[in-house]
Amino acid sequence: MWTEEIVSGLPAWRHTPSGVVFREVPGGTFRMGLSDGELEAVRAIERADGAEDDLEPFFAAAVQAQPVRDVLVEPFLIARHPLTVAQIRHWLPEFEDEFADEDSNTARLDGDLDALLEVLPFRLPSEAEWEYAARAGTSTLTFHGDGRPDEDQVLNDFADEMRVAAAQNAFGLAAMGSANEMCADVWIPHFVDAPGNARPRTGDGARVVRGGAGDLHPWQGCDEWLLLLSATRSEFADFTAVRPVASVPADHKRA
């Protein structure tokens, strides 16, 4: 089912039946959530842009990504980028995406989401796994640092391997934050009673989504870049992308 190979200079696992490329994310502990240092970095960006007051809604909502806490994450596999239209059709042959121009575009699912999750041989990432993967060992706004991310970080099409490779973080993952990606967790404000490990919080209600900057592209100057931040979180609404995760094959777990 799995084939080990090198993709853009980094080890990868390819799911042989579908061709989806996964990266192995090492385990570890990280600080999850939007820190005071990150909030100050956002304020510094807006002071430099001369439009600090425009971000008051963001700062008002930032408490939903706090308090910051230590989370232990076990090793796992995660797709290199969100599933594309072509990849979705491996499991749902009749799938159509009215937002996609090419089969190599990120697939946005609405009515087909439940059908996909029923047949997908993988699971959704927990919110903690998603943020840990997006940070890739960093504690800054994005894996690029505390600078203002720009539209070059938004990826929607994955046909151009050179562009995908250039957009990878240290874990070899591309487009973290671009699409509105669903997590396994039910939305809980302020991480109330969240566990100290990366297991998802389950129950009834809307799911957590991460990212979404590409879903508002081309940007209209309404601070859509904030959706690229590693810690930005929101409740699910409308359509979503899927970046599946899987367990590291038992025979190949690293010591």
Rank of each mutant, 00 (worst) to 15 (best):
E4S: 08
E5P: 00
W13L: 09
W13E: 00
H15N: 08
H15L: 07
S18M: 05
G19W: 08
F22S: 01
R23V: 10
R23Q: 08
P26R: 07
G28K: 10
T29C: 05
F30S: 01
F30I: 04
R31H: 13
G37Y: 10
L39Y: 11
V42G: 01
R43Y: 04
R43W: 07
D49A: 15
D49R: 15
A51W: 08
D53T: 13
L55H: 02
P57F: 14
F58Q: 01
V63C: 04
A65I: 05
V68C: 13
V68Q: 06
R69G: 02
V73L: 09
P75F: 11
I78M: 15
I78C: 04
A79Y: 13
V85N: 02
I88D: 01
W91G: 01
L92V: 11
L92N: 06
E94P: 00
D103G: 15
N105S: 12
N105H: 15
R108A: 03
D110C: 06
A115D: 15
L117M: 13
P121I: 13
P121K: 12
R123C: 06
A128V: 14
W130R: 03
R135E: 01
A136R: 08
T138E: 08
T138V: 04
T140H: 02
T142K: 02
T142F: 03
F143C: 04
F143G: 00
N156C: 07
M162P: 00
R163K: 14
R163W: 12
R163D: 10
A166E: 14
Q168Y: 06
N169G: 02
N169F: 06
F171C: 03
A175P: 04
M176P: 00
G177M: 08
G177V: 08
A179E: 10
N180P: 00
N180W: 09
M182H: 00
C183V: 01
A184Y: 07
D185N: 02
H190D: 05
H190Y: 11
V192K: 13
A194R: 15
R201M: 14
G211T: 03
G211C: 01
G214V: 04
D215A: 07
E224R: 06
L227H: 09
L228N: 01
S230M: 03
E235Q: 14
E235R: 14
A237D: 12
D238N: 09
R243N: 03
H252N: 02
K253Q: 15
A255W: 13
